[in-house]
Amino acid sequence: MFIGITQRLICNQSYFEERETLALDWGRLFNLEIFSGFLPLPLSYEIDFSMYEKHLSAVILSGGNDLSIYDHGALSCKRDDYEKKIIKYCLKTNTPLLGICRGAQMIAHYFDSSLNSCINHIGNHEILLNDDANCVVNSFHNYAITALGKDLISLAKANDKSIEAFKHKDKNIYGIMWHIERENGLENVNILKEWLNLIKEKQ
């Protein structure tokens, strides 16, 4: 089963070339038992998403880049436009969708949540899940989700009360602010397993 993954957009500095990139961490992640039976399919922004649809069991909106509401550059705008189409598709078809860090911000913003600049969200920090379990997660973002739109439910919060994980009330859409593909990204996998089980149920 293929899980489509959106990629970070960068512009090469030594000579002009726009690039789509995924960290090697993603390949290592899909070698773990928790992702057994799944293969990642990097999505190109130069290929219309409709060309991918029939091949995908789920989609992950990965991290990297700021949302265009904070960075009005062409790359951020291009990525936002593409990921909005993915969200609309997943809403229409109930295809499982997972946002990671920037991806979670994108989903939260789409559903009218509030985001604000934050401090102390670079490095590891403790979060509290809805089942009252504590765990330490990695953190690499400068903008936090401070309030969720009416269609989203909080699953975990940081000590500053910002939202660290959420899901949609009715659709198979989840967001996680930490990077599951990086070190300290899998200390607690309950939310990830819940989302992966949605994919298996749809097969």
Rank of each mutant, 00 (worst) to 15 (best):
I180S: 01
I3V: 14
N134Q: 12
A104H: 02
N65L: 15
N116K: 08
D81N: 10
N130F: 15
N138E: 09
N31P: 05
K167I: 04
Y70L: 10
N138P: 08
S162C: 11
F2E: 00
H121S: 09
S154W: 05
A104N: 05
M1L: 11
K54F: 07
E83S: 04
D48Y: 05
G37N: 10
H55E: 11
N184P: 12
N184L: 13
K200V: 15
I145M: 06
I153F: 07
G103T: 03
G175I: 05
Q105N: 06
I100W: 02
N159C: 09
Y15Q: 10
K150H: 08
S117M: 12
N116H: 10
E20R: 02
S62H: 03
L9Q: 03
Q7K: 01
L32P: 04
E53Y: 15
K84T: 13
I173Y: 04
E46S: 14
L192T: 02
S57G: 14
L43G: 00
E46D: 15
D48I: 08
K84W: 06
Q203T: 14
D160E: 09
I47A: 07
V189E: 04
Y45N: 08
I145S: 01
K202P: 02
L128F: 13
I100G: 01
G99H: 02
Y15G: 01
Y143N: 04
K54Q: 14
D66I: 12
